[in-house]
């Protein structure tokens, strides 16, 4: 009889401390359609990653892999040092507490009020009293500047307000990473700008690692060249003159499941890759 190890082999595999999310050689095929092919991606702690590409390029799938809502056919997915692609649903429920997700079209619960939506995880797990939850929800809603909507139903909100509620909901458990799936899709430019500002607030004032999936290039550029500051007049968005945000905002472009570019915003603009060029010229019109 072979000797049994006393402790089962641990599933935790270390990656360097500053790596928050890592995809290694990830492949995914659904039916006979190849969704992702040999994707390698690293997102560092407190960095932002903008995943760019046309509709159907596989951008949202990457977020679903990170959340463990889908499993890759091959390759590894690391979240904060844990390799999650072999995790069961029960194990994933714990990993997901580190992650916040803002879904495309918000995905608010129709049958719950704004307070119940934003406080969902608090009702589930925190053991806080009703009034403590309300206070916390109010604080989150104030951060995204829609505190007056606390008792409304999601159906009564506009598209922009729904996105803000979704951002507040993703923040409720104070996650270290927030994933945004097309947070500005279908919004007018002014509202889009305010949504991006909310995201930058979380990044610059709370140190949240962000992964932004978008087909709007201007959203990604805004995150790379600007910074949100708090001064005596309040919170405002200003040009980042230090160049730090430029370095900490990575651009990652995929096309038909394959990586075609990775680098910072300036490198993206200067890239001679024909896909990048095409994307740039289409976005600037």
């Amino acid at each position: 009889m072979s000797e049994q190890p006393i402790f089962p082999p641990t599933k935790i595999r270390k990656t360097p401390e500053d790596v928050m999310i890592e995809l290694r050689n990830v492949n995914l095929t659904i039916g006979d359609q190849r969704i992702l092919q040999d994707i390698d991606m690293i997102v560092n702690r407190n960095f932002s990653m903008a995943i760019l590409g046309n509709s159907g390029a596989g951008k949202s799938t990457i977020l679903k892999l990170i959340l463990g809502l889908m499993k890759p056919d091959s390759g590894e997915v690391f979240v904060d040092g844990e390799e999650i692609s072999s995790y069961t649903e029960d194990e994933m429920l714990i990993v997901r507490q580190k992650l916040g997700m803002v879904f495309q079209e918000s995905a608010l619960f129709d049958s719950l009020t704004v307070q119940e939506n934003v406080g969902y995880v608090l009702y589930e797990r925190s053991g806080l009293s009703e009034s403590e939850i309300r206070e916390r929800v109010l604080e989150l809603l104030t951060l995204v500047e829609i505190e007056e909507m606390i008792d409304k139903m999601p159906g009564e909100l506009s598209g922009g307000q729904r996105r803000r509620v979704a951002i507040a909901r993703a923040m409720a458990a104070s996650p270290e990473i927030i994933l945004y799936d097309e947070p500005t899709a279908g919004l007018d430019p002014v509202t889009s700008n305010t949504i991006i500002k909310q995201m930058m607030k979380l990044r610059d004032l709370r140190g949240v690692t962000s992964i932004l999936v978008t087909h709007k290039l201007e959203d990604a550029f805004r995150m790379a060249y600007n910074v949100v500051e708090r001064d005596h007049e309040g919170i405002k968005m200003v040009k980042d003159t230090t160049g730090r945000r430029l370095e900490e905002t990575r651009f990652f472009m995929i096309r038909e499941g394959e990586k075609v570019f990775e680098g910072n915003a300036n490198e993206f603009r200067a890239s001679h890759n024909e896909n990048v060029q095409e994307f740039l010229s289409m976005s600037m019109i």
């Binding site: 029960d90 495309q104 589930e124």
Partner: peptide, 18 residues
């Protein structure tokens, strides 16, 4: 069904409830 197609079920899973 409408919770599934509007991602509400995924949102539920993403927030750690089954």
């Amino acid at each position: 069904g409408s919770m599934v197609v509007t991602d509400q079920v995924n949102a539920m899973r993403a927030m750690g409830s089954d």
